[in-house]
Write a protein that binds this DNA or RNA. Structure first.
Lengths: 253, 253
DNA sequence: CCTGACTGTTGCAATATGTGCAACGCTCAT
DNA sequence: ATGAGCGTTGCACATATTGCAACAGTCAGG
C-alpha cells in the first residue's frame, strides 16, 4: 500500500540472509542506489539495520530487542508462565507454549527439562508445523476454509518415517485432534522425541494457544509420557480459566 | 531521512509496549487515522504487525523469525559455537557469547549449564551493560571518544551492592579490563552469580565479541570460577584465530 | 606516482506518492 | 431504534520521494 515503506521493509528479509552492501541492496530492490541509501539510513536510525566495519549492512540489535519485548508483553504468556513452571516442577520435562499466527506456529515460552538430555528448540523460532503436537491443536481449531487453505499450501517434509506425509493425512489427523481435544507427536519431528499437548482456550472457546510436554525416549517411553496427559490438560484448562476470566489490558497511558 | 518509513518504523517500538488500536497509533504518531491505517497495512503485509482478534495491532511473527535468522547468520556466532559447546562440556557451566552494537551489548549465543541451578538470560536480550563481564570487555575496546560518550549517557542501576555505581567507576574498571585482557562480574548483577569473560579479537586486533562463563555461588565459589580463566582465555583465543583466519563470506547468489 | 574503476554520497528538478479531509459503513451499547 | 465510536474508502492537493548526474574517497594496477 505504501511504496516507500514497502521497499524499506523488503530490505529486512534480504539482510536476514546475510550482510549486503549498498549496490546489492539497490539491485535486489530494483531501485537506484541513492534511493536504497536513504531507505537504509532510515532503517539505521531506528536501529533495525547495522553497518558493520566493512561498510556492509546487516540486521541490527533493536530488532532483537523488539522481538524480545513484544514476546514478553503477550498476555497469554504472562498468565501461562507460572503454570508452565509448576508443570515442569511436577514432571521434570521440557514444557512449551505456542501460538498460531498467519501460517506459522511459534513457541512463545519454554521451561527447560530438568533432565540432562534436552531437545533443541528456541523461543521465537517457527515450529515444524506439520508434525508438532501444539501445531495440530492450533490448526485444528481454525475455521474450515482457512484450515483448508493453510494445509494445502504447506510443505510436508519427512523429518522421520512417522512425519505427516501430506495434506490429506494432516487434515485427518487434525479432525481427530479436534475431536479428542488433545494431540501428540510421537517421533514425527525427531525420531526419539515424543510430545503430548493440550489447548488453551479463550472465553469464546476458541483455541488461543497450546502447550506441550516433550521428552526423549531415553528418559521416558511414549506410554509413560501419555500418563501425563491428564495433568497437561488440567494445566491447560487452568490457564484457559484464568485467561478468559478477565482481560488485563494495560492502559498505563 | 524518509518521512513515511520513519513514521512506519516508529510504530514498532510503540507496539512493543503492548497492543494498540488504530486511534492510539494515529495519535501517538501525530498523523491522521487514515495515514496510520495505511502504514499499519504495509507493516502487516510484511508480517511485522499482526491484527489480533479484537482488531488491535501488535508485533507480528515475522519479526521473531527475522531476528532468529539474522542471529543464526552471524559469522562469529557460527565459528564460535562449537568452541562454546566444548568449553561447556569441559566445565559444565553456562557459556555466553556477546557482541556490542550501537550502545547495546547483547547475547548472541548461549550454552546452558549442566547444573540444575541455572541463571536467567536469553539470547537476543540486551545485557546489563554496566556490570556484565562481557560488556566490560566490549566497551573497554571502543575508541576513547566513543567510550566516553557511551559511558556518560548510561544509567547505572544498583542491581546489587557490588554493581558499578557511576560513569567514573565504570571507566576505571574498563581501564583495568583493557590492561589485563579479561574481565569478571562478581555478583554485580545478581548477588549470587559470578562470571569470568575473555575477548574474541578480529584480524586487526579489535574486540569483535566476548565470551563468558557464569555460575552461581551455590555451585562454585568465585575463586574456583577464576580457576577457569586460563581455559576461557584459551577458548576465546582459539575463536579469535579461526575468525581472523579467513572471512568466509557467503556468496551463494 | 598517476590513472581508472569502483563504491558511497549529495543537490536538484520532476512527478509520482503519500497525505488529510469528509463521507460512509459497521458494530455495539444505550 | 438511535447514536456514538471505530475502521475504512475515494479524492484532490501538495509534499515528500525518486532517479539522475556529478562529486568524493578508496583501492589496484600499470
Amino acid at each position: 500500500m505504501s511504496q516507500t515503506v514497502d521497499r524499506a521493509l523488503s530490505i529486512l528479509p534480504l539482510l536476514a540472509e546475510g550482510p549486503a552492501d549498498l549496490g546489492q541492496v539497490a539491485d535486489r530492490l530494483g531501485v537506484h542506489k541513492s534511493t536504497a541509501l536513504r531507505l537504509l539510513r532510515t532503517l539505521h536510525e531506528h536501529g533495525l539495520v547495522y553497518r558493520q566495519s566493512d561498510q556492509r549492512y546487516r540486521l541490527g540489535a533493536r530488532l532483537f530487542a523488539l522481538a524480545q519485548e513484544a514476546m514478553e508483553n503477550l498476555d497469554i504468556r504472562e498468565i501461562a508462565h507460572p503454570h508452565l513452571v509448576r508443570l515442569n516442577e511436577a514432571c521434570g520435562h521440557t514444557v512449551h507454549l505456542a501460538v498460531y499466527e498467519e501460517n506459522e506456529v511459534l513457541y512463545i515460552d519454554k521451561v527447560e527439562s530438568r533432565y540432562p538430555v534436552r531437545m533443541y528448540s528456541r523461543i521465537g523460532k517457527p515450529v515444524a508445523i506439520t508434525v508438532a503436537a501444539v501445531a495440530k491443536l492450533l490448526l485444528a481449531d481454525l475455521p474450515e476454509p482457512e484450515r483448508r487453505a493453510v494445509t494445502d499450501q504447506l510443505d510436508y517434509p519427512m523429518y522421520t518415517a512417522r512425519s505427516t506425509p501430506n495434506a490429506e493425512a494432516f487434515r485427518r489427523e487434525l479432525a481427530t485432534v479436534r475431536e479428542q481435544g488433545w494431540a501428540t507427536d510421537l517421533g514425527g519431528h525427531e525420531e526419539s522425541i515424543n510430545c503430548v499437548a493440550a489447548p488453551v482456550r479463550g472465553a469464546d472457546g476458541r483455541v488461543v494457544a497450546a502447550m506441550s510436554v516433550s521428552a526423549p525416549n531415553v528418559v521416558v517411553t511414549a506410554e509413560e509420557l501419555l500418563t501425563l496427559l491428564p495433568l497437561v490438560r488440567r494445566t491447560a484448562d487452568a490457564i484457559s480459566g484464568e485467561y478468559s476470566g478477565r482481560t488485563p489490558i494495560k492502559e498505563t497511558t
